[in-house]
Amino acid sequence: MSIKIMDIVGRKSYHCDIVFRITDIKEENGQKLAVLYGEDFRLIADAPYEDLVSINKPMQRKISQEFEFLEEQSLELFRQDVNLLRQKQEYVATNAYSKQMNYFQLPGKVLHLDGDPTYLKKCLTLYEKIGIPVTGIHCDEKEMYKKIGKLIEYYRPDILVITGHDAYSKTLGEKQDINAYRHSKYFVQTVREARKKIPHLDQLVIFAGACQSHFESLIHAGANFASSPSRVNIHALDPVYIVAKISFTPFMERVNVWEVLRSTLTGEKGLGGIETKGVLRTGMPYNLNYTE
């Protein structure tokens, strides 16, 4: 049975450790190669066609269930954090519960650029579940830096996510060479363009990167959080967990980097960042009769 574009596959040489979907099949130097996008990880890879094996539905479902369990664990950790933050805000807003006050909260607005439409859809579903206002835009990684300026002007986000797929290739250079990465240099360019619009790190919080991305270059370009310090793969939903923590942290408080990373699926090997202010704002009174 032949393997074709959009089929779900694994790589025999890697013992099918990651599930991919085929996005293209090409020929290079007489060899048939497949372009692979990770189903659960933000990884892009090339693989010899003969190295691929189809992943059947039962196996795919088993792997998906394992990741769904991890996702639920991360979501539960995040919910615990948000509940603590809300209790603290309620205590402050009501003057240590001495007054009954109707107050409202405005979490940070997110602009999420994603190179993968499937991952973008997954992320938007999670944003909605958590309750974060978001605009999601599918954009090829190589085109992001050309469009980001006008998008920031139009949407005026508090938090910007720049992500998609990436990969390091040792055949292209050493790990410190940004040209050895599939899309890192485009993510860096996009961060720089965003910082031309809003230079201050606390006026626009930026997450940038994907699997194995050049972490140091992204941070130096102006990202608050980025991947991947140890050049490992990151989960498709990791950017959302980082953004959610920032979005629900009050703007007078600083986000503890470790507390952010503990809610992700990848942790400190795949994600890192710098001290950053939250963006949540609390107001009062809350008008129960108001409709937009």
Rank of each mutant, 00 (worst) to 15 (best):
D24H: 13
V240K: 01
M1Y: 02
G209R: 03
D114N: 14
P117K: 08
F104V: 04
L43I: 14
T163C: 11
D177P: 05
V92P: 00
E268N: 12
D46I: 00
L33E: 09
I206D: 00
P48A: 09
F69A: 13
Y97V: 00
V110T: 11
Q212H: 06
L52I: 08
E193S: 11
S213F: 03
Q87C: 01
H183R: 11
E193W: 02
E39Y: 08
P250C: 10
K185M: 13
C211Q: 03
R192S: 13
I3H: 05
I25A: 08
V243E: 03
L160D: 01
E39R: 10
D7M: 08
L120R: 05
P285K: 04
K197M: 12
L265F: 07
D51F: 06
L70W: 13
C123W: 00
I162N: 03
L160M: 06
A34E: 07
V191M: 02
G136Y: 04
E50G: 00
I219P: 03
A226F: 03
Q100Y: 11
T125P: 00
E216D: 13
R262D: 09
L151N: 05
Y119V: 10
A34D: 02
L124N: 10
T282A: 04
A96L: 07
Q212Y: 02
P117M: 06
S64P: 00
N224H: 09
R61I: 12
I148D: 01
Y145V: 00
Q87F: 11
K109H: 05
I242R: 02
R281A: 09
A223Q: 04
K185Y: 09
D7Y: 07
E174I: 02
E259L: 08
H183P: 00
V19H: 07
R61F: 09
I162M: 03
E90F: 09
V9G: 04
S228Q: 04
Q100S: 14
I18N: 05
T249S: 11
L265Q: 12
I148K: 03
Y154D: 07
V53M: 12
N233T: 15
C123K: 10
K99F: 08
V243G: 00
T276P: 08
K57M: 09
T118V: 15
E141P: 10
Y181D: 01
K109R: 15
Y290T: 09
E143K: 14
G209D: 08
D81F: 13
L237H: 06
Y119I: 12
Y286K: 10
I25Y: 05
K170H: 12
Y37K: 14
K57Q: 14
Q31H: 13
I246C: 04
A210Q: 09
A180E: 07
N256V: 06
V53L: 07
K185V: 12
G270M: 08
Y119W: 11
I234T: 08
R182V: 13
G278R: 01
K57G: 00
S13N: 14
S247N: 05
H214A: 04
F251A: 12
D51R: 08
G164P: 06
K88A: 14
K122R: 15
E153N: 11
V279H: 03
Q87V: 02
F215P: 06
F215K: 01
G272T: 02
V53Y: 00
I8R: 13
A34R: 04
Y103S: 11
E268P: 06
C123D: 10
T276H: 07
R42M: 13
L113R: 03
A194L: 04
F215C: 02
D114Q: 07
